[in-house]
Write a protein that binds this DNA or RNA. Structure first.
Lengths: 117, 117, 117, 117
DNA sequence: GTGGTCTAGACCACA
DNA sequence: GTGGTCTAGACCACT
């Protein structure tokens, strides 16, 4: 469910965070669901446990997951909590790129039309 | 002609590359034009000559400029060459984001409609 | 595995590139193999890490190796890829020289015959 | 009659020397022929007069041309003088490349055959 | 003056 | 520890 791009400039721990958010948003992870332990996920991904730990800690700070020392780690956030933020991020990225295309002289209709495909 | 944001996460040498490409796209630099010498640009921008050199080397690898020892550095790329590169980059970023929005369950029409605004 | 000639006119970083290619061609380095870290190789060869870095960057641009931050650098190219490159280089050098010999009025048969020896 | 490759790693003054030798070898320059003045050739080639001067001085040291301050510069060398040296150079380059091809496992017949084309 | 190469040494984020 | 970036400063050949 989690795919990493080890070449990307985005740090792995951030990619893990994004992937978990994505899973929540797509409904494959729901509130109260348990997510893999740090060690387990680290092994699955072929990644250092410290990296996974960093992701989990950051997600916990964002109130998206919650760890209970003995029982494991669980999703807390509802989709809505994350959805708006993520969607807005997407739109603002798109807006930035569209603006650049406009600056390059490409007419708005052409942009819209190509995106539609 | 070249503006840097030393705070940005984008490496300085990449910003220089982008700024030179931008100048070409805007027509202020044309094929066969000479661009500032490494040392001169370094001094203008207040950065180390090695940093400028790195930009020039990378641009040369992209067939955008060409350096001649003891003679200087010149633009080779036509606007079209870079325009295509840049436009394609924009579209592929947009495509990526649009796909993510779709995955999040947002209907295509809604995406298109919001971009249109 | 890597030998340098510090007297040669060929820049050190290019010699390093050639030596790594040679190792791949000879089979002592294979795809997915990890090559020494920048610092390690620099120390082994008694050169500056920046010099090794330059080699690695150039090899990466040629799709021969691939660097992963914090993980190391790995071979990507198959022998065929480099073999073709190298062989083509050889033939084009030979072609150039043969053409010059022809221009000098030496008959083709004589050239071929002398090469055959 | 003189063609330069401003991108080549071979210094321009050396290229000029080689081109003049080539002209002699091909018969387009003969002993006692006058060659262009430094300034004239420099202008023709779009090159700094000092560069041409460097070539002429070196050629004079090799007894290939001779300058008379007021009258101009003339060819002195007979073809034979240069021919052997040049041809030998060509052959030794070819030999080096052929040897490398052999090392890469390419059978001698294949090399010969491809060169013949 | 130009670009090309190299060294020494530093800082960074990431793992 | 890794690679990535950057600075400072040096030397070189060539023009």
């Amino acid at each position: 469910m989690i795919e990493l791009d080890l070449q990307s400039r985005t740090p792995i721990y951030e990619q893990i965070m994004n992937e978990i958010k994505r899973n929540i948003l797509q409904g494959s992870l729901k509130p109260k669901d348990q997510i893999p332990s740090i060690r387990e996920l680290a092994q699955t991904l072929g990644v250092n446990p410290n990296t996974v730990k960093k992701s989990y800690t950051a997600l916990e700070n964002q109130n998206i997951i919650q760890s209970f020392s003995t029982r494991g780690t669980f999703i807390t956030a509802k989709i809505d909590h994350i959805l708006k933020q993520t969607v807005d991020d997407c739109y603002s990225t798109i807006e930035r790129e569209v603006n650049q295309l406009k600056k390059l002289g490409i007419p708005e209709e052409e942009i819209i039309e190509r995106i539609s495909r």
